[in-house]
Structures are given as structure tokens and as C-alpha cells.
Amino acid sequence: MTHFDYLEQYLVTHITYSKQTIKGYRSDLRQMKKFFVEWSVKSLQAYFDQLIHQYKPATAMRRYHALMALGNELVRAKRIKVNPMKQVRPIVHQQIQQREHHPLEETIQTIRQISHPTYRLFFELISQTGLRFMETRLLSIEDIQFATLTLLVRHGKGRRLRTVPLGEGLVSKLRTFLEGRKTGLVFQSVRGKAINEQSARDALRKQSLATRGRSLHPHDLRVSFATYLYQTGNQKLLEIQRLLGHGSSRTTEGYILTEETKLQQIIDALSV
């Protein structure tokens, strides 16, 4: 079995990656295979040197991080001794963040208007803990520590475990929602399986469009949570990094948005 075949099988059976992530990673593998790229520093470096001249920075950066993760899996599976991606020059795109900001308080109010009780609490939990979509989808009742108002996250990226705090109001809602259940997934379908990924995303998107005229995605909730902690809660970047389960503070820095980016206004004034 080749490295490509192994990684294809690995992605198909991986439970913590979302369908979108798996689709993206498989596309990256196909592109790598198409250009006859080998898992060696020389081959990968030549590939990315070419990539940054042909694709948008966001595409090149995403592919870089995807192959870094897949290389780590090959090491974990003992198919290679060292991940060659760690010696490939990193791709850095220096730019001013001008993404749309979604104030956390407004976001939570929008979520609380979702009619479906499971999806409503599902996204309320994400917005108040910063959990990833798949981390929340695979959350077990046993991982909720009601006595200490904490939550153990077992399905984080990079096999990193972390404990996050829960608000008293959220804990109360979880108790009511579980109706005495002690085991199994917190958020499940009528058949006891994990909730449908696309249906959950659609519920958030439709409610946000109806309430605010703007589409919200699960990742926006993590960004809003991080921004709120940094701006309003005055939390240190390292603490936010740990809460979000990031392996690097650079990733966390990209989550911190300003409520209003004035750079464009300044530049426009110069060009009058």
C-alpha cells in the first residue's frame, strides 16, 4: 500500500474530521499525486515553490497545513520516520485582517432563536466554549463534569486533550436537555447516532439569514468567542490558545478580529 492509498483510507475512516475537511484533504492528495510529488523535502519544496506562483495565498497556505497534518499521520503510523514538511519553508501571507466581525452577544441571541432544540443548544455550546464543530458533535455525556462546571474535550486536533470551563446557565440547560441520560453522545439523532452535520449547519445558516441578513457558519462562532475573550475579557493570547485547542499561537492570532477595520478608510482618504 502506497502512502497515498494509506492516507485515502485514513481520511475515509477518520471520525473527527468534518466532511468539508476530508473533501479538502483528499483534493490536496490528488493534486500532490497528479504532479508526482514525493514525501521528501526536495520534492515537497519544489511543489510549494511552484504552488505559490500559481494559486491564491489562501489556497497555498491551506494546502501547506493540510500536507503538514497528513505527514504527521504518516509518522504516527510509522510509515516514515520524520515528517519532511517540517523542513519545507513555511508559507506566510502577511495581510491585515478585514473579515466580517460577528459580535458574540448578537451571535448568541441569534442562536437562541433556532427552533430545533438540539441544534439550538449545540451551537450555544460552541459559542460559549469555542469548541470545534466536530468536537461538539462527538461530545459524550461522560465528558461533562457537572460538579466542577468543566468539559473534557477528547476529539481535538493533534490528539490534544483539553478542559474548558462551562457557565452555570449553560450547565443548567445541558441538565434539562439530557433528561436524565448518563451515557452516550450529548447531541444525537432519534436513532442515537451523531446529529447530521449538514442539517445542523443549515439550521444555523437559515436562522442567521432570517435574523441578521448575514450567513453564520460554525467557524464564525469560534472566531467570535476568541475575539470576545481577547477584547472584552482581556484574556491573554496563550490562555485563548489553550481554550481553543490550537497548537500554535499564530493560529490563535488569526482569530482575533477588530470590530471595525479603519485601514481602508485611511487609504481611501489618501487617494482622493
Score class of each variant (00 low, 15 high):
Tyr6Val: 00
Glu8Val: 11
Leu11Pro: 01
Leu11Asp: 01
Thr13Leu: 09
Ile15Thr: 12
Thr21Trp: 04
Asp28Phe: 15
Arg30Asn: 03
Met32Trp: 02
Lys34Ile: 08
Lys34Trp: 08
Phe35Asn: 14
Phe36Val: 13
Trp39Ser: 07
Ser43Cys: 13
Phe48Arg: 04
Phe48Ala: 05
Tyr55Ala: 14
Tyr55Thr: 13
Pro57Trp: 12
Pro57Cys: 05
Ala58Gly: 10
Ala60Pro: 12
Tyr64Thr: 07
Tyr64Phe: 15
His65Pro: 00
Ala69Phe: 10
Leu70Val: 13
Asn72Lys: 13
Val75Met: 08
Arg76Pro: 00
Ile80His: 10
Lys81Glu: 11
His93Asp: 10
Gln95Pro: 06
His102Asp: 05
Ile111Thr: 09
Ile114Met: 06
Ile114Tyr: 03
His116Glu: 13
His116Tyr: 09
Pro117Trp: 10
Thr118Ser: 15
Arg120Lys: 15
Leu121Ser: 12
Glu124Gln: 10
Glu124Asn: 08
Gln128Pro: 02
Leu131Asp: 03
Arg137Gly: 03
Leu138His: 07
Glu142Tyr: 02
Asp143Lys: 11
Ala147Glu: 15
Leu149Pro: 07
His155Ser: 01
His155Thr: 05
Gly156Ala: 11
Lys157Asp: 02
Gly158Cys: 04
Arg159Thr: 08
Thr163His: 06
Val164Lys: 04
Pro165His: 08
Leu166His: 00
Leu170Ala: 12
Ser172Gln: 07
Lys173Cys: 04
Val186Ile: 08
Phe187His: 13
Ser189Ile: 00
Gly192Cys: 08
Ile195Asp: 01
Ser199Lys: 14
Ala200Gln: 07
Arg201Ala: 02
Asp202Cys: 05
Ala203Asn: 01
Ala203Asp: 01
Leu204Cys: 08
Lys206Phe: 05
Ser208Leu: 02
Ala210Tyr: 09
Gly213Trp: 03
Pro218Thr: 05
His219Lys: 12
Val223His: 15
Ser224Pro: 09
Ser224Phe: 01
Phe225Thr: 05
Ala226Val: 04
Gly233Lys: 10
Lys236Ser: 14
Lys236Asn: 13
Leu237Lys: 11
Glu239Val: 10
Gln241Ile: 03
Leu244Lys: 12
Gly247Pro: 13
Ser248Leu: 02
Arg250Glu: 14
Tyr255Arg: 02
Leu257Thr: 04
Gln264Arg: 14
Gln265His: 15
Gln265Val: 08
Ile266Thr: 00
Ile267Pro: 05
